[in-house]
């Protein structure tokens, strides 16, 4: 089973990279962009057929290594 983890900085944490990307898009004339947060995307292939268990395992990976819970939020999704 393949799952993805999307990691972004928490709302209250300043995201200077996101800010620069936003400003650049606006400078390029795409002024409909209102807000932008950038982050990381991790694709994980896991030996587990049960979706619930697979998500639990990825959750553990997030908490122990992939995510810094003080400053980052994460979202797990099943890919296929």
């Amino acid at each position: 089973m393949k799952l993805s983890v999307t990691i972004t900085l928490k709302k209250d944490v300043l995201d200077p990279q996101g800010k620069v990307i936003l400003q650049t898009l606006q400078n390029m004339g795409m002024d409909s962009v209102k807000n932008l947060r950038q982050g990381k995307f991790i694709e994980i292939e896991i030996n587990e057929n049960d979706e619930k268990l697979a998500i639990e395992k990825v959750e553990e990976m997030c908490k122990k290594l992939l995510v810094n819970l003080i400053i980052e939020d994460y979202q797990i999704k099943k890919l296929k």
Binding site: V13, L14, P16, Q17, V20, N68, I70, I71
Partner: peptide
Amino acid sequence: IETGLLKGALLKNKKL
């Protein structure tokens, strides 16, 4: 910080 021996986080420098 990453081991948890010290608390908090070290973010990217403000001016990147």
